[in-house]
Simulated scan of single mutants.
Amino acid sequence: MKTMPIVDHRIYTIAPRKMGEFIEVFNTLAMPILRETLGNPLGFYTTWVGEQNQFVHLWGYESLDDYEKRSAARDSHPEFAKYLAASGHLIVSQSTSLIRSIDALNDN
């Protein structure tokens, strides 16, 4: 698997006992848009040990410019607002980090 220089590491904390509903809304409303605008994800995870009710997803990018362009496409997609409206009551908090691979640091 190719290492992506930049990874968007997102953690959503979901309301207790609402993970199933969130995943259904995410799969139905968000994933078609995300695949169209962001491409294929690196992975999806839920917490097993540690802080509970967390949904983690990772998306890889070639550069900060690539991240900005694809994120703008996602945010301006005409159907994305439907996902935001349908999921808003399920999300307690969100943390977004852009992380760089060690390979990207060595290229500087």
Rank of each mutant, 00 (worst) to 15 (best):
Y83Q: 00
D107M: 09
H89K: 15
V25N: 11
H9S: 15
V56I: 13
D8M: 12
G60H: 08
R74T: 15
R35W: 09
E24L: 10
N40S: 15
E21D: 11
L98G: 02
M4D: 14
Y45K: 02
S71Y: 10
E62M: 04
F55N: 04
S71K: 13
F22Y: 15
G43V: 11
S76L: 12
A72S: 14
G50V: 00
R100W: 06
K2L: 12
D8W: 12
P32C: 09
K69Y: 05
A85P: 00
S63F: 06
R100S: 02
E51V: 10
L38R: 01
R70E: 11
I99D: 05
A30Y: 15
A81H: 06
F22L: 10
H77M: 03
D65A: 13
D75H: 14
G60K: 08
E24W: 05
P32Y: 11
T47I: 01
S101D: 03
V49D: 02
G60D: 06
E21A: 01
E24D: 09
A104I: 00
T47C: 05
M1N: 13
T46V: 04
E79Q: 14
L98H: 12
L84T: 09
E62L: 10
L64W: 03
G60M: 08
P78I: 04
K82T: 09
T96N: 15
Y45D: 09
T28G: 05
S97D: 13
I99M: 14
N106S: 10
I23E: 07
E51H: 06
A85K: 02
V25Q: 11
S63P: 09
D65R: 11
R74P: 00
Q52M: 11
E79I: 00
R74V: 13
L84V: 14
V7T: 15
D107Y: 02
A15D: 05
E62F: 01
V92H: 07
N27C: 06
A104Q: 14
Y61E: 05
R10M: 07
T46I: 05
Y12D: 12
D107G: 03
I91F: 06
N53Q: 10
W48F: 01
E21L: 12
P5E: 13
R70V: 10
G60W: 09
L84F: 00
Q94F: 02
I91R: 03
F22I: 02
I23W: 00
K18G: 01
Q54P: 05
D75F: 12
N27K: 13
Q54H: 10
D103C: 03
D65N: 06
E24F: 02
E21M: 07
G39H: 11
F26Q: 02
V49P: 00
V49I: 14
M4Y: 15
N53T: 02
M4C: 12
Y61I: 03
D66G: 07
F55M: 09
Y45W: 11
L38Q: 01
G39L: 11
S87M: 06
G39D: 10
D8Q: 07
E24C: 07
R74L: 15
A86P: 03
I33L: 08
G60S: 07
S63Y: 05
H57V: 04
R70D: 10
S87Q: 06
L29I: 04
M31P: 01
I11E: 01
L90V: 07
G60E: 07
I102T: 12
V92I: 15
L34E: 12
I11N: 03
Y67N: 07
Q52F: 04
V56W: 00
M19R: 02
M19C: 08
D65F: 00
W48K: 05
R74S: 05
D107T: 14
I102F: 13
H89I: 08
